[in-house]
């Protein structure tokens, strides 16, 4: 379908964008890459009166790597992450996951800020943010605030962003040397949305025991979340095949997947088991 009638604004600063958002009284949507927003408009699932394009606001497209971690401006695109040489060592899990994000043309336009605001439960990036304890910086009429990724999503396609707030950056905590990681995902076609995916990382002590495991599930549930029982199953232990199986069982038991057109709850649970077990073997 053709897109609904709308106005278009191209503000030059965040202040200008916030003012436009506030004045619109909920009738405006922010436009970054548009790779999820435009299909939503084409299906007339959203009919905003105004689109506020963030393309001309300076500084939102930077990737900064500091001792505190990796800071991605909201308008950083998937292709920017994919092609960043420093990120390969600064955050290998992030770079590896990019291969699963959408298709080639879409990675040339899709952005990290847009994906979080859209909050598709099957998208990789929100799941990565939750797994990696990302901090999301937003700005609104009252100033800026930081939101933990784990407290950002309120359900499928919905977040705790206030009406006139704009995501400005996402910070992933620093990646210690030697950290182990795995990323596994199942989708019907490479680049399609995940039926189930697992992102995980953990550190090890001198004896090879697992420290501080972070295991996140993507696509199989209503929102991305950590798998606490699975994390507990391996914490403080030395991984072997028996433990990997126990962890995968714990993870698939604690998820609550929906049954829909794309797969049954039982199928998705089995996928979580398989993806978790493979991700641990990969790590």
């Amino acid at each position: 379908m053709k897109l609904p009638p709308l106005d278009y604004a191209l503000p030059r600063s965040l202040d200008e964008a916030i003012a436009l958002l506030s004045e619109s009284e909920g009738q405006a949507k922010l436009l970054a890459g548009g790779q999820s927003l435009m299909p939503t408009l084409a299906f007339r699932l959203a009919t905003p009166a105004l689109l506020i394009d963030l393309a001309a606001i300076p500084g939102l497209d930077r990737i900064e790597i500091t001792a505190a971690g990796v800071r991605l401006g909201a308008r950083v695109r998937w292709v920017d992450i994919e092609q960043s040489e420093p990120l390969r060592t600064a955050h290998p899990l992030l770079v590896a996951a990019m291969a699963h994000v959408a298709h080639y043309q879409i990675r040339n336009r899709g952005t990290v800020g847009g994906s979080l605001a859209h909050a598709d439960p099957a998208a990789e990036w929100p799941g990565l943010c939750v797994t990696c304890d990302a901090i999301i910086e937003v700005i609104g009429p009252a100033g800026s605030r930081l939101i933990e990724a784990g407290a950002f999503f309120s359900g499928p396609l919905s977040t705790h962003l206030a009406e006139a707030e704009i995501i400005t950056s996402i910070t992933l905590p620093a990646w210690p040397r030697g950290r182990r990681w795995g990323f596994q995902e199942f989708s019907r076609r490479r680049g399609d949305f995940a039926l189930a995916g697992i992102a995980l990382h953990y550190d090890t002590d001198a004896a090879g025991r697992v420290l501080d495991p972070h295991i996140g599930v993507i696509g199989a549930c209503h929102s991305p979340h950590r798998l606490r029982a699975a994390e507990q199953a391996i914490s403080g232990q030395v991984l072997d095949d028996v433990l990997i199986e126990a962890c995968a069982q714990a993870g698939s038991a604690e998820v609550d997947p929906p049954t829909d057109l794309h797969g049954s709850a039982r199928y998705r649970r089995a996928l979580v088991h398989a993806m978790l077990s493979r991700a641990l073997q990969q790590a």
Binding site: G34, Q35, M38, P39, L51, Y104, Q105, I106, N108, R109
Partner: peptide, 9 residues
């Protein structure tokens, strides 16, 4: 860069 022309104004 290749892009989908239906996903761009």
């Amino acid at each position: 860069d290749p892009m989908r022309a239906c996903l761009m104004f």
